[in-house]
């Protein structure tokens, strides 16, 4: 028994897809997150859909990933460089065992390394990647087609939505269960 049914409609123009979205919203009780737009280039936020959920759940929390990992990197750097001077207390060149400059340099580099890792993790976590399963998708999207993905509760609704989207100007419709 599938959770929900999905319709993927391909459009050619931004105007048509926005019109269709309006139609779908008028017809069905959709909530944020039930609709998704698949494009080959980043559309500025609000051009097609204005995902409030996304904005609130992701935009602010995404900053935390590089930030928190950056702090972890800071601690790692201090632990490595400072800890070394604590454990290996050899006199080299008459320099103080714990010196600020080398510790600072190592700390800086490690903070940034962990920041990079944090950024990538934020991408993977919030975008739900990697996901190699067969999802609702059409290769034409990367050739410039604009895909509208609508999640619906029943099969009847799915049929209805497909018809509606075709009427609104979709030139190709794909239907499936769950996320296909």
């Amino acid at each position: 028994m599938s959770d929900h049914y999905t319709v993927l409609a391909l459009f050619k123009k931004v105007d048509t897809i926005t019109r269709s979205i309006d139609n779908v919203i008028r017809e069905f009780e959709t909530v944020d997150g039930d609709m998704e737009v698949l494009t080959s280039a980043a559309l500025p936020d609000g051009v097609v859909i204005d995902d409030k959920t996304l904005e609130h759940q992701v935009q602010y929390r995404q900053y935390l990933f590089p930030f928190i990992l950056g702090i972890c990197g800071f601690v790692t750097g201090v632990a490595l460089a400072g800890g070394t001077s604590w454990i290996v207390n050899l006199n080299v060149g008459g320099k103080a065992a714990f010196s600020f400059a080398p510790t600072g340099i190592i700390t800086y580099e490690f903070s940034l390394l962990f920041g990079v890792i944090g950024s990538v993790l934020s991408l993977l976590y919030f975008a739900g990647l990697p996901n190699w399963t067969d999802r609702a998708y059409d290769p034409e999207i990367t050739d410039g087609a604009l895909g509208l993905l609508v999640k619906l509760k029943t099969r009847e609704e799915q049929e209805k939505a497909a018809a509606l989207l075709t009427d609104s100007g979709a030139y190709k419709i794909r239907k499936g269960e769950n996320d296909f």
Binding site: L43, D45, V48, V58, P66, L112, G115, A127, P130
Partner: peptide, 27 residues
């Protein structure tokens, strides 16, 4: 990674690129 180009993906992706650009500029 199963990239589909959804709005969510793009928006997260752009933010991530921004982070990386800033960090690389520091490194």
């Amino acid at each position: 990674l199963g990239w589909r180009g959804s709005h969510r993906e793009w928006s997260v992706y752009n933010k991530c690129s921004l982070f990386l650009a800033v960090i690389i500029l520091c490194i």
